[in-house]
Simulated scan of single mutants.
Amino acid sequence: MAVIMEKIDLLNKAKEIRAKAYTPYSKFPVGAALLTTSGKVYSGCNIENAAYPVSLCAERVAIFKAISEGETDFSEMAVVADTGRPVPPCGSCRQVMSEFFDKKMLIHIGNLHDDQKTMTMEELLPFSFEPSDLPAEEV
């Protein structure tokens, strides 16, 4: 059973966690809030590193926190940054999201000017690479 949470509340949680981002290189803090079907919210902020490839985006931090706590059923996600338009997740985040989110799950993207857009996971990443695309295991 999905838990109902107001979209604005989830976006506000993403804005709050954004303040904790560690972004000494890009100066581009991002916050994400992930609602599980059990009603728990996992938040994440981006965390950078001088070796750029080992940095982690806010969306993946929130997802990995939830997965590490045993949560695997998600209902909505919100992502916020200080951009001119609602901030879209990067390609790496979209691929991770497609692994764990149902195609109809709602993704709310926003900015600090209260511009927002909502789309499904399928709209965000159509025709994504899926586990079923991997070769079947021989028995």
Rank of each mutant, 00 (worst) to 15 (best):
E16S: 09
E16L: 13
R18H: 01
R18S: 09
A19W: 04
K20G: 04
Y22W: 07
T23F: 04
P24Q: 05
S26D: 10
S26H: 03
S26L: 08
S26R: 12
K27C: 09
K27G: 14
K27T: 06
K27N: 15
P29F: 05
V30E: 01
V30K: 09
V30L: 10
G31P: 07
A32C: 15
A32F: 04
L34E: 05
L34F: 04
L34Y: 07
L35D: 04
L35V: 04
T36D: 04
T37M: 11
T37C: 11
G39K: 12
G39P: 11
K40M: 08
G44Q: 10
C45P: 02
C45H: 15
N46W: 03
N49M: 01
Y52P: 03
V54G: 01
S55H: 02
C57L: 04
V61M: 13
I63L: 15
I63Y: 09
I63V: 15
I67N: 05
I67Q: 12
S68E: 13
E69Q: 14
E69D: 14
T72N: 11
S75T: 11
S75I: 01
S75F: 00
S75Y: 02
S75A: 08
E76G: 04
E76L: 01
E76N: 12
M77C: 07
V79W: 02
A81S: 14
D82G: 10
D82C: 11
D82I: 07
V87H: 13
V87W: 12
P88V: 14
P89E: 05
C90T: 05
C93G: 14
C93A: 10
C93S: 13
R94H: 08
V96Y: 08
